[in-house]
Design a protein around this nucleic acid. Structure first.
Lengths: 277, 277
DNA sequence: TCAAAAGTGTTATCCCTACACCCATGC
DNA sequence: GCATGGGTGTAGGGATAACACTTTTGA
């Protein structure tokens, strides 16, 4: 079974092996504001992800993550992800982080395709135009885990998608899970698994990094920031505790909210921002 | 620049594109015991990694991580990593965790090769025979970070290798670094970077998981366990604090150390062990 | 008896949780 | 005035760090 590099390359050249290609797929996440229902109340936040409707075989008409084949001659996987995002959103310099390389053997009937997935985070206000009219933002309207099954409900205003992924413990020492898609008829490939594991990564990383600021506008209130944490973590946080934790990461400005039915909130900005943003 | 899937696949079939292949490379880490110098003292621990001397072009005679090309017809990347480990160490069921997919364009002159790297952890006592006589365990004799340059010194009893990798901050929010190999003349490909980032992952993960028990024998003393933490984290820990943290993860046995020049230590085992191990 | 390490107890400190309270705004 | 949320202070409890101390062994 074990063969030398030389043997492998000879066989590979003479096409004993199936063709192999690699795609970069991006789970692009942002925060949406729900419209206000009461002049007094704050608006609610939702997490949103960008999905594209497939136009080609296989999985025609299903929704999938934006992604594309790598050009092996000229680009890295991250270049490829950036190229795809630029073509979908017309934006550059989006925060990207490699998530995982998914490689199940039968994920695509055309050829062996391995997919390196990325998480992309963005402030939705910056997305002025989605170039590709097949791409839509889906709000996450439900997100829960029960009996090791993660259920996610997605809605783009027209379509409603339900994703169910089972988590099977494969290693006790690190709580590593294998993800298994259940009843998935609406999302292409294994992208249901990419979505679930990507959201889990974000929920985890928000606790020990400043990653959340990649989804925030330049100026924001502490309450808004807290709401973003709350919607990502799916739990309420106590105001004073949140403020204590966050206060080293943000900087006061002299700006305030206006036109709201309660005491206006001071605007803050991320302390370690670049000149841009 | 952006092209449809259909166009890409047509071009790819008719070989406009360079060939592409994927390897799985494994950073196999274990703990070594140094010989005793004093009948009273405990023996010291070292971290060790397995390297293989290359016999073929490119990078002939340099050391590299065990790894191999994926067979696109029949195996996943993790299957491939397991196959390679079996062929090097004759062991199965080694703890494996995907580290990162490295894909710089010029890492191999033969063709475009993308490498998905894995961390493997193992109790060295279980490795009775290394099958491949080109593979050797290297102890990490120095490991330090100064001015964002990580220096690692490796020694296999005969050869001494020095790795230097510079960390360049690319994202402030998550402290994400780009790793750049410096003066690397002894390690093949970009494996210096894989080694450094893998060790950093382990050092990180040891703090919030039980990952360390994959490197421990079935029975061990708390002091041994503490030494393993200390050598991985490169810092001394206080005994009472360590015991408090670890006590929920281990189970007392009635066994004790014997033949040592001080009070014998009780042997413990990992609480959540499988029947095997 | 001694050196080395095993193993335990105690205190002072820090941090977080939870709650209470006051402030400012638009209608 | 009132509903809503902004924003701050504080007491109580739990975890941790640092240190001191006792126990046990082989030579």
């Amino acid at each position: 079974m074990y063969k030398s590099e030389e043997d492998f390359l000879k066989d590979y050249d003479s096409s004993i092996y199936e063709k192999l290609s690699i795609t970069a797929d991006i789970l692009l996440i942002s925060i949406s504001n729900e419209e206000k229902t009461d002049y007094r109340k704050n608006n609610q936040k939702k997490m949103s992800i960008l999905l594209v409707k497939r136009e080609e075989y296989p999985y025609k008409d299903r929704w999938c993550l934006p992604g594309g084949f790598i050009d092996p001659n000229n680009e890295t996987l991250e270049d490829c992800a950036n190229r795809v995002l630029k073509s979908e959103t017309n934006l550059e310099n989006i925060y990207l982080e490699q998530l995982y390389t998914f490689d199940s053997i039968n994920r695509d009937p055309r050829m062996r395709i391995i997919s390196t997935s990325y998480i992309g985070l963005i402030d939705k206000n910056k997305v002025t135009n989605i170039i590709n009219d097949k791409a839509k933002w889906f709000d996450i309207t439900k997100l829960e885990e029960k009996d090791n099954v993660v259920s996610i409900e997605l809605n783009n205003g027209v379509d409603n998608i339900i994703i169910k992924v089972k988590k099977e413990l494969v290693d006790k020492t690190t709580s590593k899970y294998k993800y298994i898609g259940l009843d998935n008829n609406e999302v292409a490939f294994d992208h249901d698994i990419v979505i679930v594991s990507g959201i889990e990564r974000l929920r985890n990383k928000i606790n020990y990094t400043d990653i959340v600021f990649n989804m925030m506008p330049k100026y924001f209130t502490l309450k808004e920031l807290q709401q973003v944490y709350e919607v990502i973590l799916c739990k309420k946080l106590l105001d004073p505790a949140f403020r204590r934790i966050i206060k080293d990461k943000v900087e006061e400005t002299d700006k305030y909210e206006t036109n709201i039915g309660h005491r206006p909130s001071r605007l803050y900005k991320y302390k370690y921002n670049d000149s841009s943003n």
